[in-house]
């Protein structure tokens, strides 16, 4: 993966957004709750607070963005929400499941069934076709049967305008097509939560917009909940709300329009 230089320009909204903790208290029916979550690496003098006391809430059907400069802790926070890292303290609840309380084995199952991931560089299995990439994740769970999985994969590919590319391996697909397959893969197991990590990093602006637009549409249509980590503020216009993170602390919750100038 190539390192890219992040160009984060702090926004200058007309008035500062809400405090995330106050905002969380207002969202009483939120499907995702992050409650005073911290992640600390190292001990003593070497202690690094990657995330400090993060509190946030996201409602079902919402597509939110998590923005912040490089090293702000946004990746750590989203990794904890997705069950890839365990928090040092605090709780994360997704639709009633205490994510931090799951064993390693249960976390693997949790990620397979409840979370859909879209990675920076798509990260498709290079020796599987587009369709097989979708079917593969279906083998990781038991809720959707084999036959249903095949129907679902075909339907997703059609919605993502990939029907003609179903039998192609990633190498034969364009960057945008690959990212669309990755979206299909994230939706395949009908997860509660879709986590999107810098989806436009490997794409040009035009393609990036298309991909994020498509993501927003799919998430909305299916009533899913999505969180997108991005440093590209042009992409937040397709989201419902924007969480800002700086030096490990969630600072504000903004409306996307606050970033439009």
């Amino acid at each position: 993966m190539t390192e890219h230089i992040e160009t984060f320009v702090p926004p200058h909204p007309d008035e500062p957004g809400l405090d995330p903790a106050e905002d969380a208290a207002a969202h009483t029916d939120a499907i995702l709750r992050v409650d005073t979550v911290s992640k600390v690496y190292g001990t003593g003098d070497n202690e690094v607070h990657a995330v400090s006391d993060a509190t946030m809430a996201v409602d079902q059907g919402e597509f939110v963005a998590l923005v912040g400069p490089s090293g702000s802790g946004k990746t750590t926070l989203i990794s904890m929400i997705g069950g890839l890292l365990s928090p040092s303290s605090g709780t994360i609840t997704l639709a009633g499941t205490d994510v931090g309380g799951l064993s390693k084995r249960d976390l693997t199952k949790f990620r397979a069934e409840r979370v859909g991931f879209v990675f920076q560089a798509a990260n498709l299995v290079p020796f599987l076709t587009a369709r097989e990439n979708l079917l593969y994740v279906a083998t990781l769970q038991k809720r959707i049967g084999r036959k249903e999985a095949h129907q679902r994969a075909d339907q997703l590919l059609e919605e993502l305008e990939l029907s003609g590319r179903a039998k192609n391996v990633p190498e034969q697909l364009s960057g945008g097509e690959r990212q669309r397959v990755a979206i299909g893969r994230a939706l395949m197991n009908d997860p509660d939560l879709i986590l999107v990590d810098e989806p436009t990093a490997a794409l040009d602006t035009k393609l990036g917009r298309q991909v994020v637009q498509l993501l927003a549409r799919e998430i909305k249509q299916r009533g899913k909940t999505g969180i997108m980590v991005t440093h590209d503020l042009r992409m937040v216009e397709y989201t419902d709300r924007v969480f800002e993170i700086l030096d490990g602390e969630l600072t504000h919750v903004e409306t996307p329009s606050a970033f439009s100038h």
Partner: peptide, 13 residues
């Protein structure tokens, strides 16, 4: 490595 990390993230035991 990278692919295996992604597959594990997706829930592959």
């Amino acid at each position: 490595r990278e692919l295996f990390a992604a597959l594990k993230a997706l829930g592959t035991p």
